[in-house]
Design a protein around this nucleic acid. Structure first.
Length: 208
DNA sequence: ATGACGATTTACT
DNA sequence: GTAAATCGTCATA
């Protein structure tokens, strides 16, 4: 977790994000899409220019600290702080392939969105976006500032032994940014080309 | 105290 | 493809 964000981002693909509910129930999915935010120099990062506030404080924490923020007044997005304490880099988790307690995740999504029927939430769309996965795993603002911890509400498990999807990792420009100059086009989004659960535009750099 | 602004999702045309 | 929803955060006063 102390790797820089552009290294941590792709290395989280294939790992499993686990949400442990108060009663011990596990909601989980394999990470298939991430984005790196490089900190003080990155015009697209909340921590650009070392902007340090109550909200962005977790980005300044040690690698493995969770940063959750509210997007568009509607959605939560979860990040994991990268690098070391004081260097505000982070990796945004953008999509998962649901694996554990999927029925419960569907119910969690319905309770937190205007979705009316499970039919509108097929497995490959359940967690295919940063806001969606937070709905499915019941990730809230109150989780911001926690450390990833196997005994806590959130943690990340290593790739299974023999994981061999390294070759299907693809990169592209980040999604949904405003006017941030060159930073808009730097390839800091990482996803598995083999996954159907990645969000929105499956934009691959020229030739594909 | 107030006003502007989103690292998005959904429904509808 | 377009548009609306919706509120915490941040800057300014």
């Amino acid at each position: 977790m102390s790797a820089p964000a552009d290294v941590l981002g792709p290395s989280l693909l294939g790992c499993t994000l686990v949400r442990r509910l108060d009663d011990g129930t596990r909601l989980a999915g394999v990470i298939v899409e991430t984005e790196a935010y490089l900190g003080a120099q990155d015009r697209a990062a909340h921590s650009f220019g070392n902007r340090r506030t109550d909200r962005t404080e977790p980005m300044f924490g040690p690698g493995g600290m969770v940063y959750v923020y509210l997007s568009y007044g509607v959605h939560r997005c979860m990040n994991v702080a990268a690098s070391t304490e004081g260097d505000p880099q982070a990796v945004l988790i953008r999509a998962l392939e649901p694996t554990e307690n999927v029925e419960l995740m569907i119910r969690s999504r319905m309770a937190r969105s205007s979705a009316r029927s499970p039919a509108s939430l097929p497995e490959h769309r359940l967690c295919s976006g940063p806001g969606r996965l937070c709905q499915a795993l019941a990730i809230e603002l109150e989780h911001s500032g926690l450390m990833l911890d196997p005994d806590g509400p959130l943690h990340i498990e290593a790739r299974p032994p023999g994981w061999s999807d390294e070759t299907s990792i693809v990169r592209s420009g980040r999604i949904g940014l405003g006017e941030v100059g060159e930073w808009k086009h730097r390839e800091l989004r990482f996803f598995l080309s083999t996954s159907r659960a990645v969000s929105g535009g499956r934009v691959v750099p020229a030739d594909g």
